Amino acid sequence: MTETAIKEPANSPRSGLAAAAREFVLIVVGALIVSSILRAFVGQMFIIPSESMQNTLVIGDRVVVEKITEAERGDVIVFEDPGGWLGAEESGQKRGSVGRFFEVVGLLPDSSHGHLIKRLIGMPGDKVVCCDKQGRLMVNGQPLEESSYLFPGDAPSAMEFQVTVPAGKVFVMGDHRSASGDSRVHLTDTGAEGTTPGDAAFVPFDKITGRAVLVVWPASNFSKLGRPDTFKNVPPAVGPAPAKPVIALTPPPK
């Protein structure tokens, strides 16, 4: 007796269901691949974990971070911890393996674990000082008018300083200055790979994830994150950026 294979008719319901299932799987896999690529090279979403950027951003806001354009003065940027910056209140809660998978493929906003978000104040070579006679922060001699984003009641800085930003790094500050562990707090710290006090106060370019450009959730907080006009008036640095930061914890001449 010979065996004969039983073939489903090409137009049978079972073969049509199998084809639809294969097509669905291919669509899902393709969507995950595209989403992962977009997250890696174009942009991703982060959850705000702390109050350091209030009232520009509040705890629980979902922000879109784009990775295509270079960050400039005035931008709100997301970056990896440069080393020793993060306390429990500044770092988002780390998700489990399943949640992390959905973060990686872009289906969940990043929990912000290991990342911070601040405003970029000084580029390499910039001299950032606090403060002038009116109590304003100055960059390259130009005072900043920060009332449009500074937390109500906060001074531009409670501590006085003069710094020149080193090559390859930026100086950042939170908009809620009295509740932000930003570059100022680390002006006497030595980084993990550094030997000079203050090395840890500046964020290397390769640690910057991207520019925060949009608050998308909750809907009541939907807004665009632009670059404040005051930064348009800041002149270029007067000279090349030094290899090491130049730091003085004293007020500028007034």
Results as ranks from 00 to 15, higher is better:
Lys94His: 05
Met1Tyr: 09
Gly43Tyr: 09
Gln44Asn: 12
Pro49Gln: 03
Ala200Cys: 06
Ser52Asp: 01
Val104Phe: 12
Leu57Cys: 07
Asn140Phe: 14
Ser36Asn: 03
Gly43Leu: 10
Ala248Thr: 11
Leu214Glu: 05
Leu187Glu: 06
Gln44Pro: 00
Arg62Asp: 00
Asp206Pro: 11
Pro143Met: 09
Val172Arg: 07
Ile48Lys: 04
Val238Glu: 13
Leu120Arg: 03
Asp199Phe: 14
Phe222Tyr: 06
Asp175Cys: 12
Ala201Leu: 12
Pro242Ala: 12
Leu150Thr: 13
Gly168Lys: 07
Pro124Lys: 02
Met173Arg: 02
Asp81Pro: 08
Val215Asn: 14
Phe24Gly: 08
Lys169Ile: 12
Gly60Asp: 02
Pro235Leu: 06
Gly226His: 08
Asp81Leu: 14
Thr195Cys: 06
Asp110Asn: 15
Gly194Cys: 09
Ser52Trp: 03
Gly168Glu: 05
Glu80Ile: 09
Gln134Ile: 01
Glu3Leu: 15
Ser148Gln: 15
Arg22His: 14
Leu120Val: 09
Ser12Leu: 09
Leu57Thr: 00
Gly168Gln: 08
Ile27His: 04
Ser180Tyr: 05
Arg62Ile: 15
Ser180Cys: 03
Pro253Trp: 02
Asp75His: 13
Leu116Ala: 15
Ser91Pro: 00
Lys127Gly: 05
Glu193Trp: 03
Ile77Ala: 05
Thr2Arg: 13
Lys207Val: 01
Gly153Tyr: 09
Ser112Trp: 02
Phe231Leu: 07
Ile68Pro: 00
Val98Arg: 06
Asp75Thr: 10
Asn221Ala: 15
Val213Met: 00
Gly87Gln: 10
Leu32Gln: 02
Phe46Ile: 11
Thr56Pro: 02
Ala155Tyr: 05
Leu107His: 05
Met53Arg: 03
Glu51Leu: 03
Pro236Val: 09
Gly84Thr: 09
Pro152Lys: 08
His176Leu: 14
Val139Lys: 06
Ser147Trp: 06
Glu193Ile: 11
Lys232Tyr: 10
Gly84Asn: 08
Val129Ser: 10
His115Cys: 04
Glu145Phe: 15
Ser147Ile: 13
Ile121Trp: 01
Pro253Lys: 13
Thr188Tyr: 03
Lys118Thr: 08
Arg73Phe: 11
Thr209Asn: 02
Ser12Ala: 06
Gly92Thr: 00
Ala248Gln: 08
Phe231Arg: 04
Asn11Ala: 14
Val213Ser: 04
Gly122Lys: 00
Lys133Glu: 12
Val234Ser: 03
Glu70Arg: 09
Arg22Pro: 07
Gly198Asn: 15
Leu32Thr: 06
Phe231Pro: 13
Ser50Ile: 01
Pro152Trp: 07
Ile208Leu: 06
Arg22Val: 15
Ser180Pro: 01
Gly60Val: 00
Asp199Met: 08
Met173His: 03
Gly74Met: 11
Thr195Asp: 12
